[in-house]
Design a protein around this nucleic acid. Structure first.
Lengths: 351, 351
DNA sequence: CTGAAAGCGCTTACAG
DNA sequence: CTGAAAGCGCTTACAG
């Protein structure tokens, strides 16, 4: 399709000067047509564009960025690529960055601050115009502030470390309230909260949201149980829900990974989820619909959050000194089949 | 921690010349210490490194690449970010690219050749040193060859379009044989194959692998049923397994997404997977362990494949003219609970 | 081991 | 609208 240059194919790359010469214009003019300047006439533009096509010219971003101090590149740092939740987030980011004509440089911090430091340095070396980061657990506000001092536009996503930095997330506390209210409306009074993983703002917001919601209904918020991080081990830890004292008739999960694991573990114990035990997930990933019973889950919309984060960064790039913005999505409770009215028989069976 | 330069912080970036001056060496010498050349003495090196620290110097990849014609950047193009399988693949790629000191530029083709063209052009503009691509369905060999003509090092992953281009994948056909053999050993004779999605080499290899394996055992390979692409709709399409003619007692799934959906759909129809109907997945994603019954699945190891692809690219970068290589992982059948001996009662129940 | 010069491929004022 | 010149921050020979 593309015709080859007349010269030897092995010769060095074709440059803007080459196309300028072939189109009988100056290098500056050729540069203008590339950047779609209105200053250049239609016929000249056509000549230059044809020359570009004939020579197989490809724009050299690297050279342009050096002069223009803009790389059209944004860094994205996530703690984990393997979790479908982050994959969906990334997908949302990529879509809007791409449609802005920019490109994403991806890195995985492994939720480790030391790796995050490294990765961030690499991003700076590559001259990213800005970065979207889901900060590793334990990230200090000073870390983010230093980046801001270096004039690196920054947005936090999912986890917030500093109020001075743009943030896109979801109202986790409200989501917890929705879950608690729903279970309470079904008559549940003893509700466990199943958690795992590193501790960060999203973790805290969920726990606090749960506790507040429980307390405001006069319920005991202290049945918080820690589960393994590996999904394969969660099912076998389901017994942890039923320790000393009051036995729960329902459990709210920190995320859908736990919900999936516990659903299996409760099944293994002979409990019928949705009938004599109730289970609510959090995040509403695509698997929720495919589970049996279908998982009732609080939807946080990772793709949308990613899109919001990307738009925040674009806005920040356009106006570096505007005050910091926060965009916090509403959660929605997606009711399916995993919850039911409290069953008197549940207590006996759970032993 | 990092001390600020003495000059006004708002001044333009600190450059290699700045550190050279502060360390009382020439710019060339400073450049050598950055690139860890053995030519420079230990004390000189120390002086330069201290100057870099004091000034808060950050290496400018963009400038370096312009001169050195190497960007330390690799493009990764996947058809879909939302599928956990690709997320795991990406994770494997990122890990080895990162440890080679390079960075990945990510793009999503949406499995559309037109978008793939765009994305590829953008990668070239950004001067990637090479690209790892899972080609969109319908990609022509000519597309890849053209890239090779342009001296862009390339590796295909998961899907192979051209034998002249490096490839990292998995032996899908052998995996199908493992699945068929296992079911046959349990006494199954009428085995369905459930597929969906766009048609590409990995699709064809799986279908052909299934057919060959069935035929070599004298079984009828024609029970191939097409299912919706959306996971939420798969369950409701489970009845498609039971059309006219011979009723299957087992189904092999094109991937775990289908397996998850069908598992739910069969449950909805009152079939007990692992007891009166058998189900085998393909890919063995992490959810397989958390399902009930636990999903028996053919493991392809996406993280490992991603690592292989990245290593192939690194090797290719080191030796651009070596002959094309292929690395094809063995699959392993991970037996869990979703298959059982053929049950005579299955046929009645499935109606 | 170190220095001075040229150049990578663009964009940016500045004149015309 | 177009041209000639300088410069972005490095690396690369080439001398010393």
């Amino acid at each position: 399709m593309t015709s080859m240059p007349f010269e030897d194919k092995k010769k060095s790359r074709v440059t803007l000067l080459d196309v300028a010469r072939r189109a009988n214009v100056s290098r500056a003019t050729a540069s203008l047509v590339i950047r779609k300047s209105p200053l250049v006439g239609a016929d000249t533009r056509a000549r230059v564009e044809q020359a570009m096509r004939e020579l197989g010219y490809v724009y050299n971003m690297g050279a342009a960025r050096l002069r223009a101090e803009r790389s059209h590149t944004v860094g994205v740092i996530v703690p984990n690529l393997t979790n479908p939740f982050f994959a969906e987030l990334l997908s949302g980011i990529e879509a809007v960055i791409d449609s802005a004509g920019m490109v994403v440089i991806l890195a995985n911090s492994g939720d480790l601050v030391e790796r995050q430091d490294m990765v961030m340095r690499r991003m700076r070396e590559h001259g990213v115009d800005g970065v979207i980061i889901c900060p590793a657990a334990g990230t200090e506000p000073a870390f983010l502030h230093q980046l801001a001092d270096w004039d690196l536009p920054l947005v936090q996503v999912l986890r917030q470390i500093s109020e001075e930095v743009d943030y896109a997330g979801s109202d986790y506390a409200a989501g917890m309230r929705q879950a608690v209210d729903y279970l309470a409306s079904l008559g549940h009074r003893t509700i466990a909260f199943a958690v795992h993983g590193p501790i960060h703002s999203a973790y805290r917001e969920r726990v606090e949201g749960f506790c507040d919601a429980m307390q405001s209904r006069g319920l005991d918020p202290n049945l918080i149980v820690g589960l393994p991080i590996q999904i394969g081990e969660i099912a076998d830890a389901a017994h942890l829900l039923f320790g000393e004292g009051e036995q729960p008739t329902a459990v709210i999960c920190f995320n859908d990974v736990i919900a999936l694991g516990l659903s299996a573990g409760l099944y293994d114990r002979g409990l019928k989820v949705g009938e004599n035990f109730s289970l609510i997930g959090f995040d509403d990933v695509t698997d929720a619909e495919a589970m049996r019973p279908r998982l009732t889950s609080v939807s946080t919309g990772p793709v949308a959050i990613g899109g919001n984060a990307a738009r925040l960064l674009l806005d920040r790039l356009a106006d570096p000194i505007r005050p910091s913005h926060r965009v916090v999505n509403e959660t929605v409770l997606h009711i399916r089949q995993s919850c039911g009215p409290v069953a008197v028989s549940a207590l006996q069976q759970s032993r």
